[in-house]
């Protein structure tokens, strides 16, 4: 089975401050089958600026961030060390970041239904927010006339 659309999400934690709110949201999405985390790394940048990374299952269970381990069952290897360097470039020293690659699992049944019912996918495009804003602004202007 081909993967559903894949999204890459990198969440930085300045000063290594982890707040609890993100994890339950992600866990809920995973449990409901909305997304499936297919690869993940914890990226670290120490005070000297040295970049490193940990597999999720290498995160010390005593760490505040250890709950992340529950999100990932198996790494498919989409992330590499060059990605780590890219993401870490935007990271302040003394910070860390969780890089998550997840599959939009919710799309799979819809895709199967499209195929089974003889439908043809003509377009499937993530529209950048700036484009949406511009069009909505144009619409609003016309309504004001």
């Amino acid at each position: 089975m081909a993967l559903a659309p894949i999204e890459l999400l990198v969440i930085g934690f300045p000063g290594n401050q982890f707040t609890g709110g993100i994890l339950p949201e992600l866990e809920m999405l995973v449990e409901k089958g909305v997304i499936t985390v297919v690869d993940a790394l914890l990226i670290t940048k120490d005070k000297e600026g040295t970049v490193g990374y940990l597999e999720f299952d290498q995160i010390d269970a005593g760490e505040a961030i250890a709950g992340l381990r529950r999100l990932l069952t198996e790494s498919n290897g989409l992330l590499s060390d060059e990605d780590v360097e890219e993401f870490a470039a935007a990271l302040e020293p003394g910070s860390s970041a969780a890089a998550l690659v997840f599959e939009h699992t919710w799309f799979t049944p819809l895709r199967n239904e499209i195929v089974d019912s003889g439908g043809i996918l003509l377009a499937n495009v993530r529209v950048p927010g700036v484009v949406v804003d511009e069009v909505l602004a144009a619409v609003a202007e016309l309504e004001d006339e």
Partner: peptide, 28 residues
């Protein structure tokens, strides 16, 4: 656990592909 070093990754591959794919695929 996958090998992480010395091979393309998802973000790097996207960045390299974005040049042509980005300029050539504004679609409607």
């Amino acid at each position: 656990m996958p090998r992480r070093r010395g091979r393309p990754g998802i973000a790097g591959t996207m960045a390299r592909t974005a040049v042509i794919a980005g300029t050539a695929t504004a679609v409607s």
